[in-house]
């Protein structure tokens, strides 16, 4: 479904990604794990179109993404749930959800999608008329995910969805991720919480200083000695 082929990405003069290749297949949950500054968010932002690779290309369902303007990616079926959630704080929950469905296909299914999102996150329904800026952290994350789902995406990219959440909420977010995936939506997940990320995913890529150093099924990596040593302190 999504193929990132040998890309190099620079921030100004500093190279952030080195010859990175990943693949996400239809129906999978794929996690990108690694330390802070390893290049996970850079990779997501490049797929989202905020950064442009100097080498390599990105394919999504037969489209070459590197030549599409960034606001077009939503219409192709990629929803980006950015780090920090980036809700529209002064708009209501409902208005935020509406903003998630601006592409033509999504617009046609707006009512239906909203019901679906409300059934996934009943708490949002209670908060329909509340300004997004007044939601609690967990609710805000649900809204961010819900807003992404409103686009009727085929691929959801989640950037640090559990960042800043209480531990019990982190569990919820992982549950939600599974739930989203069970609706037939492919998920590309970036997580610093490596235990959660590996447990929830089908496959994972480990990024270190801008390079892919390991890849494999989640359970397999969970038992990988190097991972244990480097990230779990075992």
């Amino acid at each position: 479904m999504l193929k990132v082929n040998n890309i190099d990405v620079y921030y100004a003069d500093v190279q952030a990604l080195w010859d990175v290749s990943i693949e996400v297949k239809q129906g999978e949950i794929v996690s990108l794990v690694g330390a802070n500054g390893a290049g996970k968010t850079t990779l997501l932002n490049t797929i989202a179109g905020l950064l442009h690779p100097t080498k390599g290309n990105i394919e999504f369902l037969e489209h070459d993404l590197t030549v599409k303007p960034n606001h077009r990616r939503a219409a192709l079926g990629i929803a980006h749930i950015p780090e920090g959630r980036r809700l529209f704080p002064e708009m209501t929950v409902k208005q935020n959800l509406v903003m998630g469905s601006m592409s033509r296909e999504a617009k046609a299914k707006r009512e239906e999608s909203m019901d679906w999102v409300f059934s996934l996150f009943p708490v949002l329904k209670e908060r329909t008329w509340q300004a997004a800026g007044t939601l609690s952290g967990g609710e805000a994350q649900m809204l961010a995910i819900g807003r992404g789902l409103m686009a009727r995406p085929r691929l959801v990219m989640m950037d640090e969805p559990s960042l800043g959440l209480a531990p019990n909420l982190v569990e919820d977010v992982m549950k939600i991720t599974k739930e989203v995936n069970s609706q037939g939506i492919t998920v590309l997940l970036v997580e610093q919480n490596i235990m959660h990320a590996l447990r929830v995913c089908n496959r994972a890529y480990v990024l270190e200083t801008g390079r892919v150093t390991l890849e494999g099924p989640g359970e397999e990596l969970l038992t990988n000695a190097r991972i244990k040593e480097a990230y779990m302190g075992i």
Binding site: R73, L87, F88, E90, M99, M102
Partner: peptide, 24 residues
């Protein structure tokens, strides 16, 4: 209106509006 809401959204968070597929 969607267009009007897009204006509001862009004014609140331009990057997020782009994520939503809005041509900011």
């Amino acid at each position: 209106t969607d267009l009007g809401q897009s204006v509001i959204a862009t004014s609140q968070d331009k990057d997020a509006a782009v994520y939503m597929g809005i041509n900011a």
